[in-house]
């Protein structure tokens, strides 16, 4: 059964410097959906993602994740919300002086899980992204695509129901990008809701997923069926 897992009601975001990053956005994303978010630089895509994992609060309107208004959550509630949301960035955000395994395990350890569970879950996640054999290597010893897979393993190690990805293939070549996309699709098939922000027209056009387009903070398009075309 699908249910709305991410809901925006007339959401606007004005940063303290007066820049309107989003204005009056309403949308609903169902659990299990795969959604592309597209738009030129500065359109507000990252802001939209940040609102979902409560890194930013809306200036007006409501953002509901799993039915809960994120701007009303306390600090510790936000922490627990984030255990159910995996986030992947363009720049990977890996810790350079820790191994692949340590980077992924870190996400569980800081949530207080027992070492037995950490070991098992980390190996599972690294298996998912096919990097178990490189568990002892450091990020600098890996290719960009591999580093991104480590970041994905870290994002999914807690088995989140939402995966947010902000231009995850921005630094990767087309072939590797396609691999990463397939990885997201596999996770999506297992029930994870995937929101993928991307610039990459090739990727969007190669699939038939829902596309939300932003421009200057305004939602210009929300099509159930894909294709990357600016209006």
């Amino acid at each position: 059964m699908s249910f709305p897992i991410i809901q925006f009601y007339n959401v606007s975001k004005v940063y303290t410097n007066g820049i309107v990053a989003l204005s009056n956005i309403s949308l609903s994303i169902l659990s299990g959906e795969f959604v592309f978010v597209i738009g030129p630089a500065g359109a507000g895509k990252t802001t939209l993602v940040k609102l979902i994992y409560a890194e930013e609060k809306p200036t007006s309107g409501e953002v509901l994740v799993d039915g809960r208004d994120v701007s009303k959550l306390k600090k510790w509630e936000i922490a627990f919300l984030r255990r159910n949301i995996g986030v992947v960035f363009q720049d990977f955000k890996l810790i350079r002086d820790r191994t692949v395994f340590e980077n992924v395990a870190f996400a569980l350890r800081v949530c207080g899980f027992s070492e037995n569970f950490v070991k098992k879950a980390t190996e599972d996640a690294l298996g998912r992204v096919d990097l178990l054999h490189k568990r002892g290597m450091y990020p600098d010893q890996l290719s960009g695509g591999e580093q991104q897979r480590v970041a994905i393993a870290r994002a999914i190690v807690n088995k989140p129901s939402i995966l947010l990805t902000d231009e995850p293939t921005g630094n990767l070549d087309p072939y590797v990008s396609e691999e990463i996309l397939q990885l997201f699709e596999d996770l999506n098939k297992e029930g994870t809701t995937v929101v993928m922000v991307t610039h990459n027209a090739g990727i969007v056009n190669s699939r038939d997923y829902r596309v939300i387009a932003l421009q200057d903070g305004i939602k210009t398009r929300d099509d159930g069926k894909g294709g990357y075309r600016y209006v």
Binding site: K75, L81, R82, R83, I95, A107, V110, R154, N158
Partner: peptide
Amino acid sequence: ATEIEIMRLVGATEWFI
């Protein structure tokens, strides 16, 4: 800063940080 940012991102509580 990176470690702390990641900790917050993956849902560590302030006490854990």
